[in-house]
């Protein structure tokens, strides 16, 4: 039988959303698989989280140690390597923690590795069939993964259907004693909070958001004029911030702001999942892109194939003439 172990991160006693997404992923891997949640941490927060997870999972493994109070990936990896059986399938979210933990974990468990999986097509013997994307979402790929000696898989957050929380009444198994040596060559110091900017893009109903398609810093003015005409503000994708053309507080995405506007105008943005991950509340998304194959057209409500540098001023004028 396929055995699946799902690592559940949590913060301030609240589990990550992925906790409810694992059961769907596990079912798609193998409907007959056993699914165990694994949590690591220290103290009351850990106990509470482990107890809460028994509503969703029939078995919850907890590893309690002072060294695990902050989830330092090197230490978590050591603990997991001692507790998870070598032939298991291990699920981890493809986020900044999962990217830190999972590749190295696959080496230490001597397992196959597949990153940022968006769908599964089941097991064929010991071979796991799955789907991932490449080139910023421009193409998808079918991938086979030889799981005979285990597999570590990161799944894309928000992609699998969340389960009802009340399905199970599981038990907590305490494996703290098996964690082994938890010394590390990397030490966590502190978290420095992101700076607050002049403009709060999370408060606006209309966002005119620009991506690399804006091409030049001077062109940002066009987006600002359009945003003014629409009564909105200018937001952006990551490359605009990397180039220091706008401040970080304007960046939408997993490593930027989470926004909930009514209207999201994506101008010259390709639609990577890290960007789209910052857009919540199901806004009306208008994508303008000169590439008819841009992945954003798979997720937008309305798509327009145009050069934004021509389109934005014309749209602005038409709106001002209303």
């Amino acid at each position: 039988m396929t055995r699946i172990f799902a690592y559940v991160p949590f913060k301030n006693g609240v589990t990550d959303d992925v906790a409810l997404e694992y059961p769907d992923a596990a079912k798609k891997i193998d409907a007959g698989a056993s699914l165990t949640a694994v949590v690591t941490g220290h103290g009351a927060d850990l106990d509470n989280v482990a107890d809460a997870l028994t509503k969703t999972y029939s078995e919850v493994i907890k590893i309690d140690n002072e060294a695990l109070a902050y989830p330092n990936a090197e230490i978590v990896r050591k603990a997991l390597t001692h507790v998870i059986p070598a032939d298991a399938i291990v699920l981890v979210p493809h986020d900044t923690f999962g990217m830190d933990l999972a590749p190295g974990l696959s080496i230490k468990l001597d397992s196959a590795y597949a990153a940022d999986v968006v769908d599964f097509e089941g097991m064929d013997g010991a071979t796991l069939k799955l789907i991932r994307q490449e080139l910023g979402g421009a193409v998808s790929t079918h991938v086979t993964c030889d799981a005979a000696s285990g597999a570590v898989i990161t799944i894309r957050p928000g992609t699998f259907a969340p389960a009802d929380e009340e399905g199970a009444s599981g038990t907590v198994v305490d494996k703290s004693g098996e964690a082994g040596d938890l010394s590390a060559k990397r030490t966590f110091l502190e978290v420095v909070e992101a700076e607050v900017g002049d403009v709060d893009i999370t408060k606006s109903d209309v966002l005119v958001s620009i991506g690399r398609g804006i091409e030049d810093e001077d062109n940002i003015e066009m987006a600002q004029d359009l945003a003014d005409a629409m009564g909105g503000v200018v937001a952006c994708s990551r490359p605009i911030v990397d180039a220091k053309w706008l401040e970080k507080s304007r960046q939408v995405g997993t490593s930027g702001q989470t926004v909930k506007p009514k209207i999201y105008m994506a101008m010259g943005i390709s639609g990577s999942f890290q960007h789209m991950g910052g857009i919540k509340g199901n806004p009306f998304i208008v994508a303008v892109n000169k590439n008819p194959k841009a992945p954003i057209f798979q997720v937008a409500d309305v798509g327009i194939v145009e050069d934004i540098l021509d389109f934005m001023p014309e749209l602005q004028e038409a709106i001002e003439d209303l």
């Binding site: 966590f188 110091l189 978290v191 702001q257 989470t258």
Partner: peptide, 14 residues
């Protein structure tokens, strides 16, 4: 390390 929300996780590493 850049973590979610643009926060930064500081570490010391050997």
């Amino acid at each position: 390390r850049e973590i979610e929300g643009g926060n930064q996780e500081m570490n010391e590493i050997e």
